[in-house]
Simulated scan of single mutants.
Amino acid sequence: MAHIIVVGNEKGGAGKSTVSMHVATALARMGHTVSALDLDLRQKTFGRYAENRKSFVAKSGLTLPSPHYHDLPEVDHASLSPGENVYDRRLSEAVAALEPDSDFIVIDCPGSHTRLSQVAHSLADTLVTPLNDSFIDFDLLAHIDADGQKILKPSVYSEMVWNARQLRAQAGLKPIDWIVLRNRLGAQNMVNKKKMGEALDNLAKRIGFRTGPGFNERVIFRELFPRGLTLLDLKDVGVKQLNISNVAARQELRDLIKALRLPGVEIDF
């Protein structure tokens, strides 16, 4: 059975698609068979990333290890059982078709609450939640007091993850391993950065997630998207000498993959 990695939260601009593409491509480069799904049926940033990569490979003649991207299958509404949701069927059919031949399935969720996202979270063996290092984004996980010290209550997203965990427990599946990634950390050790770290540590113990290192804000990520490339492809496309920023970003990806603790993955880049 494939190990399912779901990248999700309910806020746009946190770097979900960048994380999805880099994790999926890193796993493919390490020799794993990786399938990819994008549940943001309107924006499809992850899907566009994969399409850009396919086009670049075709034009350049290079061979780059890549995840296998798939659109959700269409479903005849007449085939649905009474009360069955069409999105449930589309996602379940996609996963069922990909599981036998995949080591990993990476699913990128939209930055909003949708039925597809809700169902995907219940399928997650590993849930990755990228979070910009800001109390605005922290509100996605929990509400806090005006001083940023006391956690008042979990947010609706945390409650959705809790419900997904309950569904998995009822089905006899193993618990979700939930990792919150701190993205776009400031370079300086500012007071807000320290408060965010303390708040995340407190919340992690309360609702059950691990924290992991994400990506700093770097121009390279925006530059790579049109060609569908990742940090690991730079030397293959003719970049002979990585600059300091690129080397640092590559190490961030290495640290991220290590933090996920995925089964059977030995980092070799």
Rank of each mutant, 00 (worst) to 15 (best):
D125L: 02
E159H: 05
G148W: 12
T129L: 02
R53I: 01
E266I: 06
R206M: 12
I5S: 10
I105D: 04
Q241D: 12
L185V: 06
S17G: 04
E217S: 08
F221K: 01
R90F: 08
S134W: 05
H3C: 09
K59G: 08
F46R: 04
G13M: 14
V119Q: 00
I267M: 11
G31D: 11
T33Q: 15
D125K: 04
Y157C: 01
V237P: 05
V34Q: 14
Q118H: 00
T18F: 02
S158R: 00
C109F: 02
L123K: 04
M21D: 01
V156H: 06
Y69S: 01
T126W: 03
L140G: 13
V191H: 11
A146R: 14
D255C: 04
A171Q: 13
S81P: 02
N202P: 06
V6A: 13
P213V: 05
M160C: 02
I107W: 12
P65L: 01
A14W: 06
M190I: 13
G186E: 12
A124G: 01
V239D: 03
F269H: 08
E93N: 12
A36K: 12
R210G: 00
R115N: 01
R53K: 07
M30P: 07
D147S: 15
A187L: 08
W178F: 07
Q251C: 14
D108F: 02
L224C: 04
L200D: 11
K193P: 14
N9F: 03
S17L: 06
P82W: 10
P130G: 10
D76C: 02
D139N: 07
E74N: 08
D255Q: 13
L185R: 15
K195V: 10
A248Y: 05
A249V: 12
A124P: 00
N216W: 02
F215Y: 10
K258Y: 03
C109K: 03
Y69V: 01
K194M: 04
P67F: 05
G186P: 07
L62K: 09
L173W: 09
R29D: 13
D137V: 00
A26C: 07
L260F: 10
A124T: 05
L200K: 15
H113E: 00
H3L: 08
Q149W: 15
S60M: 10
V75M: 03
A28M: 03
C109L: 05
E217Q: 15
A199I: 07
E99F: 09
G83P: 03
